[in-house]
Design a protein around this nucleic acid. Structure first.
Lengths: 347, 347
DNA sequence: TTGTAGGCGTTATCAA
DNA sequence: TTGATAACGCCTACAA
C-alpha cells in the first residue's frame, strides 16, 4: 500500500491529501461546524461533542487547514524575512532571534535569501501571493524605486539599517554614537594617528564612519585615513595590508566597520607585519560576534543588543512600537586590542 | 488618507485587502476565468484578452492569491525548514543554500528555529496547517517516537545526519570515512598518542569518532583519549584544558568533532599551555567553516560539500534522488595545524 | 448548544 | 477561445 507522498508527473511535490473537518464530522456523527468549534479556542461546545470530535480527529490524524481561514480573514500569520550576509554571524543571530520571537507570537516565518536589495520588490511580490502579513528585511533598502514598489503592496515592511524612505519602518543600532565612542576610546588609550576600515555604501557603514570622524575632528585631530575594505575577514585583511604597506607614519588606532574586518586586520597586523596589538596599534570592531571573544582575537568591540533588535523589529511590524523608527543603543566591550582601564567611562 | 496597513484590535497584523481576480475581471470586462488563465502558464488566451487583463491587473496592483489554488490542488509550494545550531556557520551556510536552491525550484521556505529535535513533531504539526509540501530538518532525529509521529503527517521529511528510521529520508557527509582519514593523517604526520574531542550524542559525533578510533586500532595504536566536549568554541577550549591538565604523557595528535571545538582547543593549547601547533601537538577539525581558514587558526579540516548537501536534500524531498539516503564525500583540507606534505594521498 | 447556509479567491470542468 | 459553475475547507452568521 503506497500511502507515502509522491511526486506528481510534473515533478512537483504532492503531499498526501489530508483529512478535512468534514471528514472528521462524518466520522464523529456531528456537523462540520461542531468540528470547527472544537478547534476554535473559546467556542462553546458540549463535552460530549468535543469528546467525539477529538476521538475522530485523532483517528484520522486531522490537522485544521489554515488556508480557508486566511482566505476568509485576510490574515495569514506569515511574516516574510528577507535576509542576506549570512557570512556575518550578526545577521544569522538576528535571523534566528527574529524567527523565534515571531513564532512565540504565533507567526510563522517565510525566509528568502538574497545578497542584494535590488530585487526586494520582486521577492515581496512573489511572497504576496501567500498573503504575508508583513516583511522584515535585514538588507538596508537604498533604492527609492524599490521602496516605492514595496509601498504598492500595502504590506508593512521593517528594514534594518535603512534610511526611512516613504512608509518604511526602520530599526538599527546607534551607529553614529558608537563611532564617536570608538574615537574617544582610542584617544583615551593614547592613539594619535587614526584609520578607519570602511564597508561599502550602506547606511551602517556611513553612520559609523561619520560618528568616528566627527568626534576626532571635534577633539582637534587630523581626519583618519579611510581605507575601503568591505564587510568580510578577507576585506579587512587586505585593507590592513594596504594601510600598513604605505609609506609614512603608520596609524596607531584603527576602527573597523565590523568585527570580521577587524579580525582580518588583526591577523595581518600581527602575523604579516609582526606588530603588537595593542602596543603598536589598537583596534576596535563592531557587532561583538562570538569570534571577537575568542582568545586569538580578544577584540574590543560594540555589542549590538540582539534581543532589542529582534523585539523592536517585531514591535514595529505589529504596530506595538511607539514610533515608526527605532534606534537601539550599543554597549562597548573592552578587550585586549585596546589599552584603556576597564573602569573608564565613555558616555 | 490612511491606506497603510494597520493592526486589528486583537493586536494581530492585518494586511490591506488585496484585489481579487474578480475585481480585475470586472475592470477588464472579461470573466474571472479569463483572468485566471492569463496568470496560468500554458493556458490558451487570445492576445486581446491577455492585454486587457494585464492592463487592469497592473492598474489594481493585482497579485494572484496562492491560497485558493493550494486549497484546490493540495500543493502549497511551501517547504518547512527546521534548523538549529546557528552558532555553527556550517548550519547557517546549509540553511541559506537550501533556501536559495528551493527558491530556484519555485518553492518557498518556512523556517523554524529550535535547538532540540524533541518537539519536531509538534512543530511539523503546527506547520501542517499550512499544508506544507515537505520538511527539511538540520537536526538529526533521534527519537523513534518523533519519527513515528512525523510519519503520521504523510509529509516527506529529509533529515541531516540522522539514522534512517521509518520513512525518513537522510543525508549526511561521509563521517566515518573522514574520521578514518583524520587518523591516517595524524599517523602519517608522526603522531603517537591520540585524543578525540567529542560532541554529545548525535550520529555525526558517533560516526566521526568511530571512524577515527577504528582506523587507529587497525594500525595497532592504543585507543585515543576521548574527552567529552560539545560543539562550541567554549566546549573545545574547556576540553583541551582538561586534557592537557591531566597527569601523564600528553597526546600529540587531536581530532575534534568540528572546527569550533578545534579552534577552541587551539587557543587553549597555544595561549594557556604555551605549546606549539603543529610541533608539539597536531590538530584536525571538521566542517571547514570560514574561520578555519583564518590565519590565526589555519586549521586542517574536512570540507563538507555544501552544494551537494543542499542539492541532495532538495532531491531527496522531491523524489529526484536515486535513493532514500545520500552520503556526500568530504574533502581533506591540509593547513598549518598538521605537518604532512601537502601532496600526500590519504585515500 | 448545535446545525444550516453563504462566502472567501482560486482552479477544474464543461458547455457555448 | 471564452464564460458559467462547482468544488476546495474553513469561518461567520443565523436559525433551530
Amino acid at each position: 500500500m503506497s500511502k507515502a507522498p509522491h511526486s506528481s508527473p510534473s515533478g512537483r511535490l504532492a503531499a498526501a491529501a489530508q483529512p478535512s473537518s468534514t471528514a472528521v464530522a462524518r466520522r464523529a456523527g456531528v456537523s462540520q461546524s461542531s468540528v470547527s468549534r472544537v478547534f476554535t479556542p473559546g467556542a462553546a461546545v458540549s463535552d460530549a461533542v468535543r469528546e467525539k470530535v477529538l476521538k475522530a480527529a485523532a483517528e484520522l490524524h486531522y490537522r485544521p487547514n489554515a488556508l480557508p481561514a486566511i482566505l476568509q480573514t485576510g490574515r495569514s500569520g506569515i511574516i516574510a524575512i528577507i535576509a542576506g550576509g549570512f557570512y556575518n554571524p550578526f545577521y544569522t543571530e538576528y535571523l534566528w532571534r527574529v524567527v523565534s520571537l515571531l513564532r512565540e507570537q504565533r507567526y510563522e516565518a517565510m525566509v528568502v535569501h538574497t545578497s542584494s536589495d535590488d530585487h526586494l520588490d520582486e521577492i515581496v511580490g512573489d511572497l504576496s501571493r501567500y498573503r504575508i502579513d508583513g516583511v522584515i528585511s535585514t538588507l538596508s533598502i537604498r533604492s527609492r524605486r524599490v521602496a516605492t514598489q514595496l509601498e504598492a503592496f500595502q504590506i508593512p515592511v521593517v528594514a534594518m539599517n535603512s534610511r526611512p524612505i516613504g512608509s518604511l519602518r526602520c530599526i538599527s543600532s546607534a551607529n553614529p554614537a558608537a563611532g564617536a565612542t570608538a574615537a574617544r576610546v582610542l584617544m583615551k588609550a593614547g592613539c594619535r594617528r587614526f584609520a578607519y576600515l570602511a564597508g561599502r555604501d550602506s547606511p551602517v557603514q556611513t553612520d559609523r564612519q561619520r560618528g568616528f570622524v566627527n568626534q576626532l575632528r571635534h577633539a582637534g585631530f587630523a581626519d583618519p585615513e579611510i581605507v575601503m575594505a568591505g564587510f568580510s575577514y578577507e576585506d579587512g585583511y587586505a585593507a590592513a595590508t594596504q594601510l600598513l604597506s604605505r609609506r609614512g607614519p603608520r596609524p596607531d588606532g584603527i576602527f573597523c566597520v565590523n568585527d570580521l574586518v577587524a579580525i582580518g586586520a588583526l591577523d595581518a597586523i600581527r602575523n604579516d607585519f609582526g606588530l603588537s596589538v595593542p602596543d603598536d596599534i589598537q583596534v576596535i570592531g563592531f557587532d561583538d560576534v562570538p569570534m571577537a571573544a575568542w582568545q586569538s582575537a580578544s577584540l574590543t568591540t560594540f555589542h549590538q543588543d540582539m534581543d532589542a533588535l529582534a523585539a523592536g523589529s517585531a514591535a514595529l511590524l505589529t504596530g506595538d512600537a511607539p514610533a515608526r523608527s527605532l534606534v537601539i543603543p550599543t554597549r562597548l566591550v573592552l578587550r585586549g586590542t585596546t589599552s584603556v582601564p576597564a573602569s573608564t567611562e565613555f558616555e
